[in-house]
Computed example of a mutant assay.
Amino acid sequence: MTALTERTEVRPSSPSARSPLGFAGLIVLLVLTTLFVIGLAVSFGSVRIPVGDVWAIVVNRMLPGVFDVWWSQARESIVVGSRLPRALTAATVGAALALSGAVAQLVTRNPLADPYLLGVSSGAGFGVVIVTVLGFGAGMLGVFTVPVAAFVGAMVPLFLSLAIGGRYPQPTAIILVGVALAQVFSALITFSLLVLADERQLGSVMHWLAGGFGDARWSTMIFPVSALATVGTAMLWSARRIDVLQTGDDGAAALGMNVPRFRIVHLLGVSLLAGAAVSVAGGIGFIGLLVPHLAGYVVGIRAARLLPVAALLGAVAMVGADTAARSISSSLEVPVGVVTALVGAPLFVWMLQRRYRRAER
């Protein structure tokens, strides 16, 4: 987890998007890119399916009779039953993490904030340990057992952070409590795995902690999709008020904003989005930290532009990472969190070097 004990002042960007396409054109391009990447992800696998066939199958499922069927039933089952829900889940989780990461960075005015700053990832991991290792509620909800356990576990450090840190006037108190709780839950996970877990349970939990979409189903998409549709829309709706916060706490308060309450509500939304994403994908890092910076390079830091661009870039990045994870080895699926870390960490360091070199000039 990232400790957020310092504030970084952020200068407002110009109102115009930096993209030569214009903001509307950029959004259209990103939507088309997202659809293209999803099509490639569904196409790729042990059985290669042409992208044209993929979209024909999808359209024909939505509007029966549009095409004369030329594909086999087996291919349709692969597309609709397995690969498409996986790709869509990856896109939804990527959008949720990138959007929540962007909001976290804006409302804390700290470029190192990420969606897990209140300990939701560690709490979710411990929820999975309770079900997998300790056996409480195992199998009770069928395929929903692990996602529900992860989501409930993610909410525990969130509400403890609000209950404990919310007693103090400084907003950083909530964040610091969240960081401390993340370490506590990480320690509980480690203790449970080392002392209580057998080899099978250890492998299962470690695979979940590394992150991935191997268990993605149409039914389990309900968690990230619902969170993105409700919490994500609310965040986009409050973009102008988020921009007001960039003038500083005193300036925002002078304009009539209740800054502590506004920040707490949005950190709650960040954690809800992250918790829903983690519940189906595990702890996937760097998407929520890195993608908002990439979006900022394209459109600046105005929330009304940054948030939707970050969400779409996050969807593209996550689908790409999941496809790469499935492609590295024919006999073993690499956890998506490994791919995002190996690619994201060097890229993030390079971006920091560029920023600091520019500041020195």
Rank of each mutant, 00 (worst) to 15 (best):
A3M: 15
L4G: 01
T8M: 06
S13Y: 08
S13L: 06
S14G: 13
P20G: 11
G22R: 09
A24S: 15
T33I: 07
T34D: 11
L40S: 13
V47C: 02
I49P: 09
L63A: 15
L63H: 14
F67W: 12
S72F: 10
A74Y: 12
I78N: 11
V79N: 05
G81E: 11
L84P: 08
R86T: 13
T92A: 13
V93C: 15
A95V: 10
A96S: 15
N110F: 08
D114C: 07
G119Y: 06
S121A: 15
A124M: 08
F126A: 09
F126G: 05
G127R: 00
V129S: 08
L134P: 00
L141Y: 15
V143I: 14
T145Q: 06
V146R: 07
A173R: 08
V177M: 06
V179I: 15
V184Q: 02
F185C: 13
S186W: 02
T190Q: 14
L193P: 08
L193I: 13
L202K: 01
H207R: 14
W208M: 06
G211A: 03
G212E: 01
F213T: 00
T220K: 06
V225E: 02
A239H: 08
D249K: 11
R263P: 07
A274P: 00
S279D: 07
G288D: 02
G300S: 03
G320Q: 04
G337F: 04
V339F: 05
G344H: 03
R355T: 10
